[in-house]
Design a binder for these strands. Structure first.
Lengths: 150, 150
DNA sequence: CCTTGACATTCCAGCAACTGGAAGGTGTAG
DNA sequence: CTACACCTTCCAGTTGCTGGAATGTCAAGG
């Protein structure tokens, strides 16, 4: 099987497969006489696991650890379960942050609409609102401190 | 005012300020005789707007457009309002995606717990679940097709 | 025999938004 | 004199790919 076929089986671009090999996620496959990569069924399985884990938002680093376990004949199931747990928590935290952000955006929009829209430099404009952060009296836990970066 | 003080006023690392200058978000400030950057009050305002917009998850590209408007003496308020709207929608979409992902993770965890945890290669293990995607009979709208990437 | 097309290979560059670190200059205090 | 806190520039790395150039290989068609 050449790279393209593996690519189709696992729904992962060939380019990405080469990249995974480069970073050591997939083992370098044997080559055909012409230098083309030759893959087997087990490569499909491995790549599918990678793709599945990626869909679950696992980092390549995390996936690598799972695969390394398996390569050392240790069943990664327990680790994977823990990872699922951890990831679920991360996601839920992220959701909360985004919800907060959503609220902030809506509030800014609402307040901003009541301001003139042609105030280039002055203080009565959404822009000022954005640069100062939300005005105080909004909600208890709402406009606390949105964080920069992350 | 030197860069460190501007940094404190706007709660943006000095390093990031230089970076913003490099990509044209902030104008290159005049220099002191020793070559140090010298900032004024208006620089604080500008940087605060940038920081505020970043907190709202605007991209530097979007912020640049806003600032360019202002630099051409056009009030960016209306554009900003539209942007707030657009961003709120993006966020809400993202939240929905994450919620879906959260459900999938929880399902996998639940199902995975019922499986043996020492199955290195076999088919009765969370790992298999992950590589095949969710099994069919779970919920109606739940494990449809989690998407890869993005 | 030659060309076209679909494959394959390598390597280099770029995205976003920074962050870290090296190597060096400046200014003040003790 | 030296320590320390600043400042400067430049280069490299992060994450997970993706695009493109330049080149090679192979089968089918004219």
């Amino acid at each position: 099987m050449q790279i393209r076929e593996l690519s189709k089986h696992a729904a992962v671009p060939a380019k990405t497969i080469r990249y995974y090999e480069e970073i050591g996620l997939l083992p370098p496959p044997p080559r055909q006489p012409n230098g083309y990569r030759r893959y087997s069924e087990t490569d499909i399985e491995r790549l599918k696991l990678v793709a599945g884990a990626r869909r679950l938002d696992f980092s390549l680093e995390e996936i690598k650890e799972l695969l390394d376990l398996r390569d050392r004949r240790v069943a990664p199931c327990q680790v994977l379960l823990d990872l699922l747990d951890k990831k679920a928590e991360e996601i839920s935290t992220r959701i909360a942050e985004l919800r907060q952000l959503e609220r902030t955006l809506q509030e800014l929009h609402t307040i901003g609409k009541t301001f003139p829209i042609d105030d280039v430099e002055g203080k009565h404009c959404v822009c000022h609102l954005v640069s100062t952060g939300l005005p105080g009296p909004v909600a208890d836990d709402a406009g606390a401190q949105p964080r920069i970066g992350e």
